[in-house]
């Protein structure tokens, strides 16, 4: 555009050159593709390497061959792992923890966010900020005091809170609830005030406003929070490492590392297979919910 204007201004060339916008766009696209491909390579290399290694025998992994190629592909690692009762226990523990944590977190944070975003009460602003500040405290700082609290409860009541998978259900919400509440406060706050006033006049109470207006309208936000919450509780490593020790109480991330590494013997094939299988559920949930998420965003956007 600039060149075209300049040419008209100087009058040296009578013909205006068109297509400069398309050229600019082309150049931008080249660069976009360049960086996108760079990032894709960067981020996909580890999973691809995991996949390749998971198809190799221990002998081939140990041998000096091209690490990016499988000469004798085998599914033995998968068969071994999936036939181990232990690995399936890890899977089951992880799944139970994730499902319970997601349910608890979503119920708590949706209700908390609704009251903080809409029902103005004394101290609601401070509380909302407090929720966010809680999220800013890293888990690596929290687990020692939490451990102390559990020990204290044990001394007081005799309830054993260490070395049970279900203890994680109490621990993970310290990470998920503040963040999900914060996300949901933002989502709920973006819903126009008139919408709840209209519902109020239509005869809805607070619970009905929440369930019949806010939750459906904020569904994309709720799904985003759910995905986050599931990922955190599925992938957390530090808490289960610190709070669970018996093999039958472990969850996947810790289980794979502690049972497949024996001393200084690394069973790389099974480690990679376990990691790959462990990464599958979040991936599947992402894929499924992302579709739903996008569908929710675009529903009714086109005129009929």
């Amino acid at each position: 555009m600039t060149t075209a204007t300049a040419q008209i201004g100087t009058g040296e060339r009578s013909a205006v050159r068109y297509g400069s916008i398309a050229r600019g766009r082309k150049r931008t696209l080249y660069w976009s593709y360049f960086f996108l491909i760079l990032f894709v390579i960067f981020f996909l290399m580890p999973p691809v390497y995991m996949f390749i290694t998971s198809l190799k025998t221990s002998a081939e992994i140990g041998a000096v061959t091209n690490p990016w190629w499988v000469y004798h592909p085998t599914l033995q690692n998968y068969i071994d792992l999936l036939s181990q009762a232990q690995f399936l226990t890890f899977f089951k523990n992880s799944a139970l923890v994730a499902v319970i944590v997601v349910s608890v977190t979503m119920v708590v944070s949706i209700m908390a966010a609704f009251s903080l975003a809409r029902m103005k009460f004394w101290g609601s602003g401070t509380l909302a900020t407090g929720v966010f500040l809680t999220y800013l405290i890293p888990e690596s700082l929290l687990f020692i005091p939490l451990f102390k609290i559990f020990a204290f409860i044990h001394d007081l009541t005799g309830i054993e809170l260490i070395n049970h998978w279900w203890v994680l259900v109490f621990l993970y919400p310290t990470l998920t609830v503040p963040f999900c509440t914060w996300i949901m406060i933002g989502y709920f706050a973006s819903i126009p005030k008139e919408l709840d006033e209209a519902a109020l006049i239509d005869g809805a109470g607070y619970i009905q406003i929440l369930t019949r207006v806010f939750i459906p309208v904020a569904l994309p936000g709720i799904i985003a929070a759910t995905i986050f919450c599931f990922t955190v509780s599925w992938a957390n490593f530090l808490y289960p490492l610190a709070f669970t020790t018996s093999a039958d109480q472990l969850v996947l991330p810790v289980g794979i590392v502690t049972t497949l590494i024996k001393g200084d013997v690394y069973n790389w094939g099974q480690i990679m297979t376990g990691a790959l299988l462990g990464a599958a559920p979040p991936l599947i949930i992402y894929a499924f919910l992302m579709d739903y998420y996008i569908a929710g965003l675009t529903a009714g956007a086109t005129k009929g």
């Binding site: 126009p192 008139e194 006049i201 309208v217």
Partner: peptide
């Protein structure tokens, strides 16, 4: 009954559902 400046229609409901919301409640 109140009509708002920005209409305040429930975006996730059809016109029928919007109009009948109060009666359904």
């Amino acid at each position: 009954a109140m009509v708002f400046q920005n209409y305040a229609l429930y975006p996730h409901m059809t016109v029928y559902e919007n109009m009948s919301f109060g009666l359904r409640l």
